[in-house]
């Protein structure tokens, strides 16, 4: 069942097209990663989802309701953490949390206290004294102590330290266990990789890739380090080989994942002494999409033999 469905969303500011035919679908119980560089349109998309910006064209539905006209109904079931958390300098963190939770509707006092302790926030301080990380904690505590069905988190950890990031991840896993859905926009790839079931990559207002992590890995390469008894011959002539390099530990190269089988067959003829492989990271995926000009089949020019 899809909680959130965006079809051909286009948003223009004057003549500038910020979003061009964006499609997204988040199902119940899914943690959905939404990644892209700054200015790609992540926050614009999210603000359309929340009915803060009006779509120029396309269909945006949350819980089968229109994001613009049914905004208030929808927001009763949504918890949101903005990327840039600006708070009222003369209110305390505790006051802001209560205000936020109350404005959504439900209230969970015990959860609030537990989270304040977990995130190590002093709620009696005025917001003007909070650092970026602390302001983010306020928004996160307010979001996590709400009983929502969909959590929309816009780069929620950009100001948190690693310890707090850990706690954030625990909270997201908690939500997942409860069958809640999360839309997590981020450019911290390791985080998305750890948390998300599905990923959409946006660049210059267009979604350039969507799918599960496994599906996307098809598009990427595996890093191999191999040491053989005899020197490997004709490696560079194989399909899908990249960045072949002779190192002290052996031969290092990248191979397109779908060519893995034939490459392994070829190498095994030369007597493998040692082999190490590293899984493709989202990082690679990301880089390949953002290095717009890079071609997929640039073969390793610095050949082995």
């Amino acid at each position: 069942m899809s909680l959130l469905k965006v079809t051909n969303l286009t948003k223009k500011f004057g003549t500038f097209t910020a979003l061009d035919k964006v499609n997204l679908e988040v199902n119940k119980g899914e943690i959905y990663g939404f990644i892209g560089p700054n200015g790609a349109g992540k926050s614009t998309t999210i603000r359309v989802l929340l009915g803060i910006l009006k779509a120029t064209d396309g269909d945006v539905k949350l819980f089968d309701k229109d994001a613009w006209s049914d905004a208030v109904e929808i927001h009763r079931r949504v918890a949101y953490v903005p990327g840039d958390v600006n708070l009222w300098p003369n209110l305390t963190g505790g006051e802001v949390i209560d205000l936020f939770v109350k404005l959504r509707g439900s209230n969970n006092k015990s959860r609030r206290e537990e989270l304040i302790k977990k995130f190590d926030l002093d709620p009696t301080k005025k917001c003007r004294t909070y650092s970026k990380g602390n302001r983010q904690k306020v928004a996160l505590i307010a979001a996590f102590s709400s009983d929502a069905d969909l959590y929309i988190l816009d780069e929620p950890t950009s100001g948190l330290d690693p310890l707090m990031e850990q706690i954030f991840q625990e909270c997201v896993f908690d939500l997942k266990r409860q069958g809640k859905s999360v839309l997590l926009s981020s450019h911290i790839l390791s985080e998305v990789e750890k948390l998300c079931d599905k990923v959409a990559i946006i660049r210059e207002g267009t979604i350039i890739e969507t799918g599960t992590l496994n599906e996307l890995r098809h598009l990427t390469r595996t890093q191999i380090l191999v040491d053989t008894k005899q020197p490997i011959e004709k490696l560079a002539e194989l399909k899908g080989m990249h960045e072949i390099e002779e190192t002290e530990q052996g031969l290092s190269f990248q191979v397109d994942t779908d060519q893995m089988d034939q490459v392994m067959r070829h190498i095994s003829q030369f007597g493998i002494v040692k082999i190490e492989s590293a899984p493709p990271t989202l990082e690679d995926l990301f880089m390949r999409h953002y290095e717009g000009t890079e071609k997929v089949d640039v073969s390793g020019a610095g050949g082995a033999q």
């Binding site: 905004a71 927001h75 903005p82 936020f100 404005l103 959504r104 509707g105």
Partner: peptide, 8 residues
């Protein structure tokens, strides 16, 4: 957006 992002 803090307010409009909630049920207001």
């Amino acid at each position: 957006e803090h307010l409009l992002g909630r049920a207001v």
